[in-house]
Design a protein around this nucleic acid. Structure first.
Length: 300
DNA sequence: TCACGTCAAGCAGAT
DNA sequence: ATCTGCTTGACGTGA
């Protein structure tokens, strides 16, 4: 079990999310921002290694407008050495990597152009992981998508389009249960038909479920990850107290977390903490699980 | 230097 | 019909 957090480090004065407005697109601007983003990514990863956090989600904003039509620049070639250097750092330290395209990426959309743009954006994510030289255990996590008042049809459309994906995307794509449309049971059904691994989101599950037993889920989810995929990834976050349902907590709630970690004992997975204060909560969790036999700290 | 309106993109659910 | 939330965070204009 490796511990991680997504995209942003609030301790370091360095963000791998620098971007710019579409209006101000230029190759110079692109290069400047990507250079900053890759440098900050390296600083964040080194920060994490020193603190035994070996799981990290790379921001989708790493290369602004990467799949947009204005951008025909060969950023992969330009930054080839830097990508390789970063990839080596990741591999030498056994860091697990994920990426999470945001809400605009809808593979099963009922609009053709949304579908095609989504594939382009997925290809960009796969390219980043390929340029880093990472194996199949580095994953791209995606929600199933829209329902359009026709869930079975929409599931089918997802499966068909998944089968048609380029191998570079297919080997990395995993699906995640969301908080209002597709439960983990839906995801498992899609997985059964298509072979796509299922990433379990504990918090989404508490908001949208079909009453499945927690342990049953972990067992089923685990079986969707093959050897080449690595151990499962699990997302965890806790509800902000006294706030609208679905709000992420500002900081980790120890009680709820300890319950979760206790129940999950028979299973191993890498754990992503989606908590607002990012690395601070992840560091607390490293402390909480330090005696857990599953926990993997940094080597030296 | 700072405040604040705005930003490529989709969808569901609330108002 | 229109607005809000989702990882909301970061840009960039105007004062």
């Amino acid at each position: 079990m490796k511990i991680g957090y997504p995209c942003i480090n609030r301790t370091l004065d360095c963000t791998s999310n620098r971007t710019f407005r579409l209006k101000s697109y230029s190759v110079e601007n692109l290069i400047e921002k990507v250079e900053n983003n890759l440098d900050c990514l390296e600083r964040i990863l080194r920060f994490n290694i020193e603190r035994d956090m070996l799981f990290f989600r790379i921001s989708s904003d790493l290369v602004p407008f990467a799949s947009h039509e204005v951008n025909d620049y060969d950023w992969g070639g330009h930054f080839r050495d830097k990508f390789k250097e970063l990839g080596d750092l990741i591999k030498e330290n056994d860091i697990r990597i994920s990426m999470h395209p945001d809400q605009f990426i809808v593979l099963n959309s009922n609009k053709e152009d949304v579908y095609h743009r989504s594939v382009d954006e997925l290809l960009y994510h796969a390219e980043v992981l390929d340029f880093l030289g990472l194996n199949n255990t580095a994953k791209i996590q995606l929600h199933v998508g829209g329902v359009y008042d026709a869930k079975e049809k929409s599931k089918k459309r997802f499966i068909d389009r998944y089968q048609d994906l380029d191998g570079a995307i297919k080997k990395r794509l995993v699906i995640e249960n969301d908080e209002k449309s597709y439960s983990v049971k839906d995801c498992l059904e899609i997985s059964e038909e298509s072979g796509v691994p299922v990433l379990f989101d504990y918090f989404h599950h508490s908001l949208k479920n079909d009453g499945e037993e927690f342990c049953w889920i972990l067992k089923k989810v685990e079986s969707t990850w093959k050897n080449r995929d690595g151990i499962p990834m699990v997302d965890y976050s806790s509800q902000m107290m006294d706030e609208r349902e679905g709000r992420h907590a500002e900081s980790i709630e120890k009680k709820d977390f300890n319950k979760f970690i206790e129940i999950s004992k028979p299973y191993d997975f890498d754990l992503m903490l989606e908590i607002k204060d990012k690395e601070k909560s992840a560091m607390k969790v490293v402390d909480l699980v330090s005696d857990d036999p599953r926990f993997i700290p940094a080597q030296i």
